[in-house]
Design a binder for these strands. Structure first.
Lengths: 352, 352
DNA sequence: GTGAAAGCGCTAACAG
DNA sequence: CTGTTAGCGCTTTCAC
């Protein structure tokens, strides 16, 4: 059970002894403080090389009250969006000299609290969070009580922490506008049933877009699926069999997009001649699909950059006392999956 | 530049003082050593609660020479395979009381060395690696010189470290056997050009399967694409236009699979009537695609379990002096994308 | 410019 | 059973 202690390696004391200088001098050259003779520096550096000395990070942390480590809590790295985000965060943080501890909360409130508590006791210098239970009182309390700078990603909390938000409303609004401009009047939105901020905002943007163009928002055309898996195929199929079927579908997320495309292909409908498709989120295959699928994407690099800058500035003690909030645009990328609305939709023309 | 030190929180000394006991006694109840009176325990526990005391991890690490942290080096979490693997690893390690530091090497040898060195100086208790440059001399040296238990994932190194390998050869062999049993004689393999172990083994298994069934291994039917992106569509299209076109395609990886499916659909060929398709790797959409795509998958949970057990046993000092190697099976899941070879392939029947 | 020494928070060994 | 103490490896005063 109890893990074996690692064998000890060369310490700064060994370096000092080998170099024939005091421990303090060794420390000074290691930390590049200027008060050192060239000769001393040389001796110490030689000793460092000879012993393959590496400073002990735990000792530094204890002394400096700094771990140079950022805790990252995501619901699930398996979600490509988060994976990309993490990669970008890690990239930027590493150039700033930080490493990342990554934990998946799997949307479990209890686990989120536990992870936060571990981050705290491990002395993370800062924390980046995209928790699933941001509205849970205890999770919120844990977030606010953590005592180190926090950046919250794409979450709807009126919190005292810095935040990076995605601009879902105008993004969706723009998508609807574009489809309306192509002549579409019956546009369906397929989403997962989730009460979280991003989802609410997207639906909000969708509705506002429809209204702005004088299009009716029909409740049956906003399909909220219980889970991300497997229900979309049937739902889309049913939708497309209606006499007043939609001429455009906005599909939210990789799975739903996939099943939507399958349903369309299964009905032998053509994209974009019979139906236009827009994906919310830009999975890798969207661009390589035939036809390429139009997507609304968030610039995850920009999000990572914003989060990093927010956090790093806090670590330096700047940034003021008020929480800051950075908004990241959503970009619409039109590809071949969007075209003019078909003139008649009663009996869709068959493939070939 | 220099990060601000965190404000200090309650220490064990504060707890002891508030409880009115000695520092040693406080430590004893915190660490659940038995030599404590119920009364002492109670007092200490009350003080802990009152101060919201959490042990300082850096101090513990320094003292115990143990960080309860595992360094994980992957080429890229953005690869869904690695993301799943990481999630499974993190899950298991967390129940064993460890947290995971995750770094993406992006296949850069220099960075891999750097990360390894950081892991070392940060005193990781163990390391789990799937590096891109496992054949690079310097990377290898860094791996062997790290001085803590290492588990290597799916990499072809005759190393002194424990390894978890995937059983690619029999897996591919089995896929080919199955296709041969369905009457296929011309089977194409589409892979990325990569000299790494997994790829070599897969090709090896493919060839051995073909030979075992007396099928010719034609070099033109083993397509090695320069990168994972964008070349597959053209290559597959060309392949399928040949008079002696393959009747089955084995596609390696998510991107290639996608483009392969697009190419097939673009030529108006039907799966599985005109062509059978097998995916190496089982991306989420394979099961929900219409028709569902047969896949050869590795059990990533089993891999994570093996890696965890290998590492944990080393951390406990057991496992012997010799490197151990665990082989993880590849499972073939047949879905609707495979069927009997078409009788004639000269002019494929058109859809509908 | 350099050395000596204190102490970060903790555990474990030792004495009582 | 409890208190005292040494030190893990490091940075940083403070004298010299």
């Amino acid at each position: 059970m109890a893990p074996l202690p690692r064998p000890k390696s060369a310490s700064i004391r060994d370096v000092a002894e080998l170099a024939g200088v005091s421990l303090g001098s060794a420390s000074r050259v290691i930390n590049k403080v200027d008060n050192v003779t060239a000769k001393t520096r040389e001796k110490v550096e030689k000793a460092i090389a000879a012993l393959a000395y590496r400073p002990n990070h735990a000792a530094q942390s204890l002394r400096l009250r700094t771990t140079r480590t950022i805790g990252c809590l995501l619901t699930d790295v398996t979600n490509p969006l988060y994976a990309k985000l993490f990669r970008a965060l890690e990239e930027r943080m590493r150039t700033a000299g930080y490493m990342m501890l990554l934990a998946n909360s799997l949307n479990l409130a209890e686990r989120e609290i536990d992870i936060l508590s571990t981050f705290q006791s491990r002395g993370m210098d800062g924390v980046i969070l995209a928790p699933g239970n941001e509205r849970d009182r205890d999770v919120l309390k844990a977030i606010h009580g953590i005592g180190v700078p926090v950046v919250l990603l794409d979450r709807d909390i009126k919190s005292k922490t810095d935040q990076v938000l995605f601009d879902h409303v105008p993004g969706m609004h723009g998508v609807v506008s574009r489809l309306a401009a192509l002549g579409h009047r019956r546009i369906a939105l397929i989403v997962t049933q989730s009460p979280n901020r991003p989802m609410r905002r997207r639906i909000e943007g969708f509705c506002s877009g429809m209204q702005a163009h004088g299009l009716p928002v029909e409740d049956e055309f906003i399909v909220r699926l219980p889970t991300a898996m497997s229900a979309a195929f049937a739902a889309v199929t049913a939708l497309l069999k209606r006499p007043d079927r939609p001429t455009a579908i906005v599909a939210m997320g990789t799975n739903i997009l996939n099943e939507t495309l399958n349903a369309i292909s299964n009905l032998d409908m053509r994209i974009p001649q019979d139906i236009s498709v827009v994906s919310i989120g830009d999975p890798d295959f969207a661009a390589s699909y035939a036809p390429a699928i139009s997507s609304l994407r968030v610039d995850l690099d920009a999000a990572a950059q914003a989060a990093t800058e927010l956090l790093l500035s806090r670590l330096r003690g700047v940034g003021g006392s008020k929480p800051r909030c950075v908004m990241i645009d959503c970009h619409y990328i039109e590809r071949q999956s969007c075209g003019p609305a078909p003139l008649s939709t009663g009996k869709p023309s068959r493939r070939r």
